[in-house]
Design a protein around this nucleic acid. Structure first.
Lengths: 245, 245
DNA sequence: GGCATGTAAAGTGCATACAGTTCAACCTCC
DNA sequence: GGAGGTTGAACTGTATGCACTTTACATGCC
């Protein structure tokens, strides 16, 4: 009625739909880094031709969520440790910018919306990890979207997704309790309006998320399959020596 | 020899080729904001099918250089004044990060390379504006590429191109002399190694570039075609009244 | 049995065909 | 002469087909 008939999205932005679906599957770790994404399979799954699937993969590759190599099946991106560190560094600066613009400028409605989101995070705390990771990420995107700066929104979303991806790669079982609390502190500081304080809060929040995840450079360069498999290459104690041996 | 047979690029990354060509045409203002980019025409021009051209447009749209609206011809992006302002704000933070990582860490070779680039800027000073704008932008990208952080490189490049696009929209005839000098100052400070100083220098450099370009909000919202055409709406003196008339 | 080789299946790269939409000139009717 | 409708050309959206590349498996040789 308003601008575009938005019931069931008849404008059929099919590549957008696929992108959203894949993005979500990736950050919920239903698709782990390295997972294959053949065009045929995607097309069939979403009821479209390879053309569309291919285009969607192109977009996701531009966002850094998918790796595309010529003549090879697309895979979910596997960021190296260094890339993860870099991503967090950038993210910190971008999100400091977000809260700087937002401090003291949020309406009551917006603050309520933020609180509601954190409540949802709280509820999901005992559910599957994937959900709480996604909600934590979406909190930051919600924040960014309140700047109403399309460019900033896009960049923060993109890098938040990438960071989320690395969490699933490097992070231990993931205890997000403190993070949730930090989100509440952020909201309060934003409402209070001291830009410097909020920026510093955001900085430390992201820093601690990053260091919780990237507990020291676990692997010199994480992309080498040999390195990744190293910890698993120890002889499994008293296990299968092969029944025939 | 080194990594990928790069003579004449036989791996035929055709969409990449088209993207590069268009990017360059855009920042050199051969293609002005609003210029139409029909898939057929691009395909024919580059000797490929629409499929490829379309894919390239998708990538450029993801970078924000091209605007894609359903069922409509793609056009070169026309950022609003506010978007331009936002882009520069983000750019400042990103490039502060760049120089923070680079300060005191550049090799002599790299410093020489930077100086060489600024020399080139100097030489182009009396040439066409388009070239000096491009070179100025490429200086920043060169800087970013020295961080060797793919993510940072990509973001800085992308936003630098967008800012460049803005310059061509809002900027007056463009006097870049002081900017060139500021580039030299940046290099010196980088070599000296005081991170804080370089960051501040970069901040002011970009700030002044931005304010030189965005001299107060010229148009409340710059995307309205009527506003853009206002200065051109004067009656064309004694021109074509149609021979048949 | 282990390693090289060949070969078919799976998958991507790309062009093309066709359907649906937009746009602009033209035409009609006032 | 101008507002509004109409039609065809110009484009985009998408599926499909074919050629080429990669991959995995089976076959054969040592």
């Amino acid at each position: 009625m308003t601008r575009e008939d938005n019931r069931s999205r008849p404008a059929t932005d099919r590549v957008g739909t696929i992108c959203r679906a894949l993005r979500r599957a990736i950050i919920e770790q239903a698709l782990e880094p390295g997972a294959k994404l053949p065009e045929d399979a995607l097309g069939e799954r979403f009821g479209v031709s390879r053309t569309i699937a291919r285009h969607a993969l192109g977009q996701l590759a531009a966002e850094g969520l998918v790796e595309l190599r010529r003549n090879r099946i697309a895979v979910v991106a596997t960021p190296s440790w260094q890339e993860a560190r870099d991503a967090f560094d950038i993210r910190i600066e971008l999100e400091r910018l977000v809260v700087r613009q937002l401090a003291g400028r949020l309406t009551k409605t917006q603050i309520a919306e933020l609180h509601a989101h954190v409540d949802a995070e709280d509820e999901a705390r005992n559910g599957p990890d994937a959900i709480s990771i996604r909600l934590a990420t979406e909190f930051h995107i919600l924040l960014a979207s309140m700047t109403e700066s399309p460019i900033l929104i896009r960049y923060v979303s993109e890098i938040a997704y990438r960071c989320c991806l690395t969490l699933s790669l490097f992070s231990r079982p993931h205890s997000s309790e403190c993070a949730i609390n930090e989100h509440r502190l952020l909201i309060d500081a934003l409402a209070k309006g001291d830009a410097e304080a909020v920026m510093s809060l955001m900085h430390h929040h992201l820093d601690s998320v990053a260091s919780r995840a990237l507990v020291a450079q676990t692997r010199p360069r994480g992309r080498d399959i040999m390195d990744i498999l190293a910890p698993y290459a120890e002889p499994p104690r008293a296990a299968r020596v092969k029944a025939t041996g």
